[in-house]
């Protein structure tokens, strides 16, 4: 029993279960999944659908945080990626052309990679503190997205692009995309030595240097991967609304992503990272957003409510630890 409690995913899973139970209590049909037009519908499906972009961003963020860094620019990359894709499609004579959509997707993802590499170079080659280096793109990125869309919301009407946020075999397409990315990342980091070397750099940078690890390359890769994930999330978001909104796409998603990573057990100081924990962390954050809606918390209070729950989630294991050490001390 104690080994179950001590498992690092125990408390995040408890928090997730509690959130879902609260919803079930408020809304008895919360777990119900219905089939409409051959597609699955229901609150749980909504969580998965809306949580996929966050999960992707958090996935990339996990690797960046593991190197001892942080990526604040992901929200802006979400906006830029969506803006590029929609801008390209909107300029095509036939918005329903599959090849045009594929090119749009490739352009958006390539641009995301370049932005990530930019972050990585600032951090790894020029030694700028990660929080500052990525803050630059957090601020400038919104401007870039606005420039691409000329300050307007570009709306498109493209059936192939809509597939990204559509359904496949009854499931929302974003779910398998996110699942594949999680699986790919797990393989990439654990089947190669990437995970070990990243954890070493984040765990002790100077020791890693003296052992001959090329940490600059690893960091650039991590920031590039983070931006790529954000770029995919940007495609999902813009496909969902068939529009690019440079202003609000991906707004505050960096904070949710960082929270998801931390709730998942990865330390902000870097080192050991837990992809499974991040997935659960992202689900918790998304469930929380859904819960706030179910509970009917007035919209002005949502942020405060969210903050309170996050504090509780973060404190749960700490409180336990403090209590157990007190018990040890008195006995």
């Amino acid at each position: 029993m104690s080994s179950v409690i001590r498992h690092r995913l125990f408390w995040p899973l408890v928090a997730l279960a509690l959130l879902l139970l609260v919803n079930l209590f408020k809304k008895p049909d919360f777990f119900a999944i219905s089939v409409i037009n051959g597609n699955l519908h229901g609150s749980l499906i909504d969580i998965a659908l809306n949580g996929a972009p966050l999960m992707l961003v958090a996935l990339g963020m996990t690797l960046v945080i593991a190197t001892g860094g942080i990526d604040l620019s992901v929200g802006s990359v979400v906006a830029i990626s969506g803006a590029i894709a929609c801008f390209y499609i909107s300029g095509q004579p036939d918005q329903n052309s599959l090849s045009a959509v594929l090119i749009a997707v490739a352009l958006a993802l390539a641009a995301s990679l370049v932005l990530g590499a930019w972050n990585g170079v600032l951090v790894a080659r020029f030694g700028i503190q990660p929080i500052i280096a990525t803050l630059i793109l957090l601020v400038a990125g919104r401007g870039i997205a606005q420039l691409i869309t000329s300050g307007q919301i570009i709306t498109i009407n493209s059936a192939p692009y809509k597939i990204i946020s559509g359904f496949w075999l009854g499931l929302p397409v974003v779910v398998p995309i996110a699942a594949v990315m999680v699986g790919f990342t797990a393989l990439l980091t654990r089947r190669t030595a990437l995970g070990l070397l990243v954890e070493s750099v984040g765990g002790n940078a100077e020791a890693s240097r003296l052992v001959g690890i090329r940490s600059a390359t690893l960091k650039i890769m991590a920031y590039g991967f983070s931006a790529l994930c954000a770029g995919i999330a940007g495609l999902m978001v813009s496909s969902n609304i068939s529009a690019a909104d440079g202003n609000s796409a991906g707004l505050w998603i960096e904070l949710d992503a960082i929270l998801a990573v931390v709730i998942g057990g990865t330390s902000l100081l870097g080192g050991r990272f837990y992809l499974g924990g991040t997935v659960i962390g992202a689900l918790i954050i998304q469930s929380l957003t859904t819960t706030i809606l179910t509970m009917g918390v007035p919209s002005q209070g949502t942020m405060v409510f969210k903050a309170v729950v996050v504090i509780i989630v973060c404190l749960l294991p700490v409180i336990r630890k403090v209590r157990s050490t007190r018990v040890e001390a008195t006995s």
């Binding site: 070990l196 954890e199 070493s200 765990g203 002790n204 100077e206 020791a207 890693s208 003296l210 080192g271 050991r272």
Partner: peptide, 9 residues
């Protein structure tokens, strides 16, 4: 401690 071990690993 500072230049050798990666304590978490």
């Amino acid at each position: 401690r500072a230049e050798g071990l990666v304590p978490e690993l």
